[in-house]
Design a protein around this nucleic acid. Structure first.
Lengths: 161, 161
DNA sequence: TTCGATCATTGACTTTCTCAACGGTATGGG
DNA sequence: CCCATACCGTTGAGAAAGTCAATGATCGAA
């Protein structure tokens, strides 16, 4: 009940602070590239803020999510799916390991690769974080109807890979 | 005509390399947050690559675009619209100024603020970059129909601000 | 066995982000 | 007019994120 930000009960079409909408008719606001970057900035910003009490960020959540999926992902697979450099995965897994949320297990089929699995504590952390993120997503998507959200998901899914 | 990457004439539903689609059914692929970040990563990556020959990146393009819009934006306004810290705007304007693409003009109404305008050369650079970016966007959106692109633009516009 | 490729890891480096401070300037109240 | 306060651009420092090359261990195939 605290969130004071945005969505004032009044001011129907007051987008953000004044001065911004002046450029909405411009060329940038038509470029999907730019809009995507803008949306992502707002989204991950809000998400990280909401996630802070849990001691992780969205980056780490994404790794934790894969670890908790039961799909036994290797670090390389994670990097590919998350579009992150292998070295970044190392750091992220390290930090989650420090939190006791995940564990590295050497793949018996290929001892070079390590499979990341969530611990008990990791599963609990994941569930909490998941709910927080669903709230955050809901807040970020504010004005969109359920139908529109589904549409957006579908469209993004097509271009994200 | 060199770009060998992606969009093979065949392979209708071959998303990226193999191993990735294994996680598509997972929980992350349902989160708009994640999809947005993924899409943005791909998009800006491709765009920066295409833009490299012109000596700028998407960050600088966005500033140049506003400067070339004729809307006489101040740096503060740019920062707000682009969701960038004022100090970053300074650096971006500096680099564009070094390229001779933009100029700082002190606002006569408020001598604290500086209005950024594109030079002749800046306008030419902007036009070239604009075309490159439209191509890049087209490539990134590959599989989307014109109708879907319009939808996506509309949806993103709603959540980007 | 040996050679080339792959995986995780490390390290160095660049870019981007975030924040605090400072000088110059505007604005409003006494 | 003078003053306090707030704002703009700028600088600087430090954290976070992204990029790239190299290495040891392991795999797969010749």
């Amino acid at each position: 009940m605290s969130t004071s930000t945005r969505r004032g009960a009044s001011a129907p079409d007051a987008l953000e602070d004044q001065g911004t909408e002046r450029f909405l008719a411009g060329e940038l606001a038509q470029q999907i590239q730019f809009l995507t970057a803008r949306a992502r900035g707002r989204g991950s910003g809000h998400a990280n803020h909401m996630l802070a009490p849990l001691g992780i960020k969205v980056r780490q959540y994404s790794v934790l999510s894969l670890a908790a999926s039961g799909l036994k992902p290797s670090q390389r697979e994670m990097g590919e799916f998350l579009a992150l450099d292998p070295s970044q995965i190392v750091a992220l897994v390290d930090s989650l390991e420090d939190l006791g949320a995940v564990q590295r297990e050497t793949d018996p089929r290929d001892r070079r690769s390590k499979i990341i699995v969530a611990t008990e504590a990791g599963m609990e952390l994941f569930e909490k974080a998941r709910e927080v993120l669903l709230e955050s997503e809901d807040a970020t998507l504010g004005t969109l109807s359920a139908r529109e959200r589904k549409q957006l998901r579908g469209l993004l899914l097509k271009i994200a890979f």
